[in-house]
Computed example of a mutant assay.
Amino acid sequence: MISEFIFTKILGWKLVGDFPRHHKKYIVIGAPHTSWKDFPIAILARNTAGIPINFIGKDSLFKPPFGFIFRKLGGAPVDRSKSNNLVDAIVAVFNSREEFRLALSPEGTRERVEKWKTGFYFIAKGANVPIVMFAFDFKNKEIKVAEPYYLTDNMEADFDHFFSFYKDIISAKPEYFNNENLL
């Protein structure tokens, strides 16, 4: 497969762990998201794993001349200028499909943030699906994939679990990743 060749042989990355194949529905949270390089590396890792995972992105990415590429890669545009309930809309998508995996960046941007956005958490809660953590470790050129995590009724404990997975990850731009407090 061409993606695997590019990912492993040309770029020198490796996949540590694997996406769950027996789960038909889950949310993948990809972090730290600090560089434009994260997206193509994530697509190559997904293709190397051979499992369909969709993503959403700001609607401007899906406009001509290159918008068709993002759609072909499994993306769907989101209009962030409108005040709509994106969490409920995505929960409805999960509930209407037999198989759906959605990748999101909990940071919501490539810039440094003090706290993660919580939409992914409430989508997982509403759709009753687990979260699979996905880390961009640029220091070791590894994509690390965790086992599915089922949310508890304690949001703080859940975010502590996420923090423990990401705390030692070195991103493309380490100064942009807040690895001290996610909630």
Rank of each mutant, 00 (worst) to 15 (best):
I69G: 12
I90F: 04
F62L: 05
R112N: 09
V113D: 09
R71K: 15
F120D: 13
S81T: 08
I69P: 14
P77I: 02
A124D: 11
L86C: 02
K117H: 14
I123R: 02
G67I: 08
S105I: 02
Y149S: 00
N140R: 15
V132G: 05
K82G: 09
A89E: 15
K139G: 06
F100G: 08
A135D: 00
V132A: 12
A124R: 04
G119N: 14
F122T: 11
S105W: 00
D79C: 07
F68K: 13
V145F: 04
V93M: 06
S96I: 10
E111T: 15
I131H: 00
L102H: 01
Y150N: 11
F94N: 07
R71N: 10
R110E: 03
N95D: 15
A76I: 04
A127C: 10
E107D: 09
G75R: 07
F70K: 07
K82W: 07
A124F: 12
K144A: 00
D153R: 15
A146W: 06
N128V: 09
E147S: 13
E98C: 09
R101T: 09
K63N: 11
A92I: 05
A89N: 15
R80A: 03
P130R: 11
V145R: 03
E99V: 12
F62M: 01
G75T: 05
F70I: 00
W116A: 03
E98A: 13
V132Y: 03
E147W: 06
D137Q: 11
Y149V: 10
R110N: 01
I143D: 02
W116K: 10
S81F: 05
V113A: 08
V93D: 09
I90V: 12
I131K: 05
P106I: 10
P148Y: 04
F94W: 13
E142K: 10
W116M: 10
I131W: 03
K144H: 13
V91D: 03
I90D: 03
N128W: 05
F120I: 14
E114T: 04
L151R: 06
L102W: 01
T152W: 07
R101H: 09
R110C: 07
A92V: 04
K125N: 13
F70G: 01
T109K: 01
S105P: 00
A127H: 04
D153P: 01
V87I: 10
V78A: 00
F122C: 13
E114D: 12
V93H: 02
Y149T: 06
K115E: 15
I69K: 10
K115I: 11
Y149N: 07
P148I: 01
A127I: 08
K72D: 00
N95L: 09
F136P: 03
K139H: 15
T152S: 15
T118P: 02
R110K: 09
P65I: 14
V78T: 00
K117T: 12
V145K: 08
E99I: 13
K144Q: 14
A146L: 00
V93W: 02
I143H: 02
F138C: 13
A135Q: 05
L104D: 04
I143E: 03
R71L: 09
F136W: 03
R110D: 07
E142I: 02
F122R: 15
P130T: 06
V87L: 11
I69N: 10
P148D: 02
A103M: 14
G126Y: 00
E147D: 15
P130S: 14
Y150A: 03
P148M: 08
Y121W: 12
V129M: 06
A76K: 06
F138A: 12
K139Q: 14
F122Q: 11
